Amino acid sequence: MELEVRHLRALCAIADTGSLHKAARQLGMSQPSLTTQLRRIENALGAELFARGRTGCRPTALGRSVLTRARPLVDGMAALVTETRAEAARADGPRLRVGSTASRALPGWLRRLRARFPGTDVGLRVDVSARTLLREVAAGRLDVAFVHEVEGSPLHVPEGLEHRLLVAREPQFVSLSPAHPAAARPVVDLADLARDHWMVDPAVDGEWDGLRRVLTAAGIDPPLLHGDYHTAASLIALGEAVAPCQPTSVPREDLAVRPLRGDPLAVRLLLYARPTTPLTPLHATLAEAYREAAHRAPPYRAWLHAGGTAPPCLPGTDGGRAGRQ
């Protein structure tokens, strides 16, 4: 087996994330496929490159040596691809490469960007990891990234990036089965969910740590499930789990969305770019799209009118209380 750039990229991703699961998500492949690929690489080299344990994957001494040689090659190839694409973009017309963590404001934002910048090819990359998107912006592979930062779990932001704040504190709601007893109330107490299985995606930066802190502070130690939120929706609909969700989530016939009393879970919403990217029009169009998404979500709209603090992008009503992914 001859090592290729894709193999070296996989090794770097495993080292950067410290997890086969997170690295697979970052690379856009399944964890079993990445595990098989790593095993083949190690077999080809005749030694283990990573020590696997309950806390993740750590490079062995040989792994660190291989990574020292691999990173310049991976970075060089990435730079080559970026420069080639930039030259092609200059020849074909302007491009705007947008990155984002999941948000229901995205469709409205893309629509507004295309209207605001006619003739510009607006591309999109969605990733569960805000840190990954910020690295892509710093490397020049994305022009702008819309990310969320879990309260109490600050993001590591590469040097040289500028940002604009969209929402200083967005409350996280809970998604549960409509048949759950707590769904009969407009606001849910954490204690009402103490015996439920909570599902969280460990690949989302800070999500697991933030939820654990809040549950521990409330004196709750419920059983936890780890998985992506698409899988979570199926389990929630069956009454097998509950999960944090964005307040802009729109209830479905099989899913109820409720605010948590006291808003113990929260995130900051931020827009990052390099200094050469004009943030003002990007922020303005995103704020409009977020406002639209907020008012389309009945639970969020009710929360805002009941006294929730309006985020910066939404004009307040009733003396600053009003209308907020």
Rank of each mutant, 00 (worst) to 15 (best):
R85F: 01
Q31V: 15
Y229P: 01
V242W: 00
Q37A: 12
A139F: 11
S153W: 11
A139K: 11
V167A: 15
H230M: 07
E4K: 12
D75S: 07
L269V: 14
R25F: 08
L166P: 08
H197N: 04
P278E: 03
K22C: 08
R164C: 14
R291S: 12
S234T: 14
R185P: 06
E48M: 15
T216E: 11
H156Q: 14
G210V: 03
D228V: 13
A115Q: 15
L38H: 00
P315K: 14
A182Q: 01
L134H: 04
D209M: 06
G320E: 10
T248C: 13
R131K: 13
F173A: 10
A130Q: 03
A184M: 10
R261L: 13
D143G: 10
R212N: 11
D209W: 05
T216D: 08
H295K: 14
A289K: 06
V214A: 08
L155N: 12
L110S: 01
L67V: 07
A302W: 02
P94K: 01
D201W: 03
E170G: 07
R71P: 09
R111M: 01
R185T: 13
V204W: 01
R112F: 03
P186H: 05
E292N: 05
L176R: 06
L215G: 00
R95D: 06
W208E: 14
L225H: 07
C245K: 02
L176S: 03
R52N: 12
D189I: 10
E159C: 15
R213A: 12
L106R: 05
A194N: 04
H180Y: 00
D228F: 02
Q31F: 12
P311C: 10
G108R: 00
A24E: 04
E288V: 08
Y229E: 09
Q37K: 15
L62K: 12
G119R: 05
E159R: 15
I220V: 00
G316H: 03
P178R: 07
L215S: 07
A289I: 08
V174D: 02
